[in-house]
Each structure stands twice: as structure tokens, then as C-alpha cells.
Amino acid sequence: MKTLVARAFSSRLFWPVAMLVVLVVINVIAFPGFLSITVKDGHLFGSIIDILRNGAPMLIIAIGMTLVIATRGIDLSVGAVCAISGAVACSIILGSSDPGSITTVATAVAVAVVIALVLGLWNGFLVSVIGIQPIIATLVLMTAGRGIAMLITEGQILTVNSPPFKAIGSGFALGVPIAVLIAAVIFAVAALLTRRTALGMLIEAVGINPEASRQAGVRARGLLFAVYTFCALCAAIAGLILTANQTAADANNTGLFIELDAILAVVIGGTSLAGGRYSLVGTLVGALVIQTLVTTVYTVGISPIVTMVFKAAVVTAVCLLQSPATTAAIGRWRRRLAPRVAVEVAS
């Protein structure tokens, strides 16, 4: 039992999961029906479903961000890519003669995704070929991206009336919100591709030491292109979900600050910004922590605009708890209390 506790304590997922449990408990106390899920018209309803649905875009971006961060990179441009993909899709749907047809929506989505892939390649090019620090390379697109989205929408908020497009954001399939299904598929694909093949290990190798991994025969350049493109793809899909949810493309506000939330989700999940190792499950937990926190603020009855203060508190708490100084302090404390546990962990 002691070993089990010790192992749980030393797990990277311990603090994020503990945080999530605390948040859920607070919710259950404040709002006893929190955990219940009901079926209405063949659709699932409930607070948890809401959390999953509202958190889906952030989770999708966080998945792409996890892989980017694993290569010791960061992608600040995802919010701008969200805005661009939403703007592209909406302007295509608005420009077509039949906004309600599935073909139009499919074209719009396809074009938006292709443009996002180009933007991802651009980021990958700056980082891997020119060798610019990722935070700055993506800052370029972050700064210019919203301007580009404004050009596409011509400064307007484009409102579309297209049921198939709306379904991406707020529709249901098999009783589950489509946005959640999309997030699940992307999560599964990312997890299978990187954890069932050597890809994940190679990505981590690039994050630990790009030069050494290149000399060991890892094609670092190609991998960097791949992760930035994948991240932009995730951002585009999230942008489409956000836009479809509002049925409007707002170049200024679609995906505003989502890059920060996504990075927070990744960091709370225990992936180090220094690269070299990552945990997709951790990212999932991190995204849930953030979204549950937002929901908690609503259910407990605190004014929702104060959310940011709580976000700051949670981020600070998790970062401080995960920091090397704290880990060392806890380690000392544990060794003093129960020397045997420490020995067992070490062995």
C-alpha cells in the first residue's frame, strides 16, 4: 500500500489528476446533479458532456501543441490559424449559391484545412530550415495571422446559415456531440501514431537534442515539419468547431487566447516546455482541469469574468507543485518520514 501511495505521488500525473478530482468534488458539493448524465431526444446531456463539448477545441489544439512542445518547440500561432480557418470556411460558404448543401460545407472545410496545412508548413519551414526559435517563428504568424483573417472577412463578422456547417459545432452523432467525437478521433490517431510506432520516441529524441538525434539518423527536419503541420491542422479543426458553434467567423475573437489555454493544458499535464518527453493523457487531464475550472466558476456562482484569476491560481499552484524545488522538498520530507518508502521507490 505504501509503495502504491509512493508511486502515485511520484507520478507525473499525480498533481493534475488530484486537481481534477478536487474540482469535481467542489462541483458535486455545490451542485449535486453534476455527475448525472441524462438522455434527451437520443442525445446525452449533463454537465460533464458540456465540459467535454466546450473543451473539445482547446483539447484538439493541445494535442497538436503537445507534440510541438515535445520537440522543445512552441506554437503561438494556433489562435490566429483558428481565426483564418474559420474565416476561410465562412467566406466560402457565404460565397456559394447553396450554403446548406453538404458539398459546399465539405469544400469549405477542405479548403480551410489545406490553407492551415500551408500555414503549418510555413511555421515548420521557419523553425527547421531557417532555424529560428519556435516562440519567435510562430509569433510572426500570430501577429500577422489575425490581420490576414481580417483581410479574408474584410473586417466583417461573417454570419452563415448552413445546417451542415452548424452541426460541426453543435450537432450530435450517436448521441454524442460531434465536436467531442472529432476530438476523440484526433486524440486516438495522435496516441496510436506516436505511441504504437517509433514516431513518439523520435519526436522526443529531437526534443532532447536535435543535433545528436540528427547524427543518430533521425530526420529531425522532417519531424519538425510534421509536428508543426499537425499542430496547424489541429488548430484549423478547432477553429472550424468554434466558428460552427457560433455560426459566425469573427477574425478578432475566434480562438483568442486559445494558444495560452492549450499551452497551459499541456504544461498542467506534466509535459515539460523544455521538450524531450510528453504525455498525451496528461494533456487530456490538463485540458479537462482547465475546462472544469471554467465550469466550476459558473456553477459555484462566481462571476464568470473572474475566471482568469482562478486560472492564474491553478496554473501557479500546478507549476509550483511540479517544480524541481518542490519535488526535492517533498522528497526530503518523505525520506524523513518513511525511509523505507523512499528506498522502495528508488529500487
Partner: peptide
């Protein structure tokens, strides 16, 4: 605590922006 500057100042940003609303 060896928190990355990016994350630490991000938390400060959330805190400051949130306090504005408070």
C-alpha cells in the same frame, strides 16, 4: 521554483487581467 518565464508571466497575465475585471 524554476518555472519557465513563459509560463510564469502567462500566469501573471491571467492574474492581472482577471483583477481588472474584479
Amino acid at each position: 521554483f524554476e518555472v519557465q518565464p513563459f509560463i510564469a508571466t502567462l500566469a501573471a497575465m491571467f492574474l492581472a487581467r482577471g483583477l481588472c475585471y474584479v
